[in-house]
Design a protein around this nucleic acid. Structure first.
Lengths: 200, 200
DNA sequence: GTCTATACATAGATAGAC
DNA sequence: GTCTATCTATGTATAGAC
């Protein structure tokens, strides 16, 4: 293994560290209140060095969004191991409930980012935020479709709206119980859905 | 009518103009991306003059939040004229549906403000945003209670979560139809609730 | 590839003339 | 009460040494 390879590996490690730090800090502080210095500190990278990996702050925001997309893909990958579509959806909701303290403090990572970016006049970053949310919507729709239910897209919309609504309200009221209560309501709703073919 | 009174009236008119302009612009652009110059321009007041009425930017944000509170009170005042509690709640949801284009572009005025302010470490402004949302929650709970339903607070939470969820999703997906679809679902839900005493 | 020093722009806030 | 000029701080971004 040559030195140049070592360097390249460490370099991409730094890029990776910056990306994950951006995802974390942007979630906690929002885009506009977060400075490049904040992200650099969190990633343990010197401030001026950031520009070697990302030309602009917006590129870092984009990287954070793609990190959220990866996290989502990992999550749905794990959920794929659940017995059937209904169990996968319930496991998804249970995961949200387990994260209730974070939601009550900072809201949904992707949802709050989308809300902030959507106010921009130029529609580059907000389209990307919307795409991540749409990915969750699509996966959820696939599960309802596998259950053989009519209007799977509509059901998926209801579920994801429920998630975003309870996350925002938990954060606005600073109360994790909001997630517990609404999450349990969603679980009961999933249980109540009549299913023609349970594990299609 | 003396000159001093005239001046005082015009002065408070300017303060009022600044407050309403702040409510509007902060909703459209968010807190951090909005400059005092933006608000001053919208209110047709010279920039430097803003500081005569508001000592800091945060005071303007606070004024905008109290404007949202007033708008909410006006709305519930108008809804009070509806026949019964169920009609009032349905009229509330129908109002949200009518505003779907604004929601798809900028989200809920109070909800997006709350989401942004909640990320601050100091909890002054975010508490105020939470208070406005709680006011809607309380009024909604009163209606469910008047209907004689069990757990009126829980039902109110579900309704307001539904509003915030569909507003955020409509804005993230840039699609007003999200509000139409989820709003109609909420209307059907309200209709489906069994009511012991219809107009208690 | 890494890091320091600094340029440049912007925005919040203040001083003081009118 | 009204408005202009300006101070000051901060944050993005760049130039260039190592």
């Amino acid at each position: 293994m040559t030195n140049s390879v070592n360097r390249r590996e460490r370099a991409s490690q730094k890029r990776q560290r910056l990306t994950e730090a951006a995802a974390r800090v942007l979630h906690e502080q929002g885009v506009e209140r977060t400075t490049l210095a904040d992200i650099a500190r969190e990633a343990d990278v010197p401030v001026g060095n950031v520009y070697y990996y990302f030309k602009t702050k917006d590129e870092l925001v984009l990287a954070a969004l793609s990190a959220h997309r990866s996290h989502l893909d990992e999550l749905t990958g794990r959920l794929a191991e659940s017995a059937g579509p209904r169990e996968r959806l319930k496991a998804l909701v249970e995961g949200w409930i387990a994260q209730r303290d974070t939601a009550a403090r900072y809201g949904c990572p992707t949802g709050t980012l989308a809300a902030e970016l959507d106010k921009r006049a130029d529609g580059v970053l907000d389209a990307e935020a919307g795409a991540v949310i749409r990915r969750l919507l699509d996966w959820t729709g696939d599960q309802f479709r596998a259950l053989g239910l009519p209007d799977p897209e509509g059901l998926a919309l209801t579920l994801v709206c429920g998630y975003q609504g309870m996350s925002l309200m938990a954060s606005a009221l600073r109360d994790p119980d909001v997630v517990t209560r609404e999450g349990n309501r969603l679980l009961a709703w999933l249980d109540s859905l009549p299913v023609p073919a349970e594990d299609a």
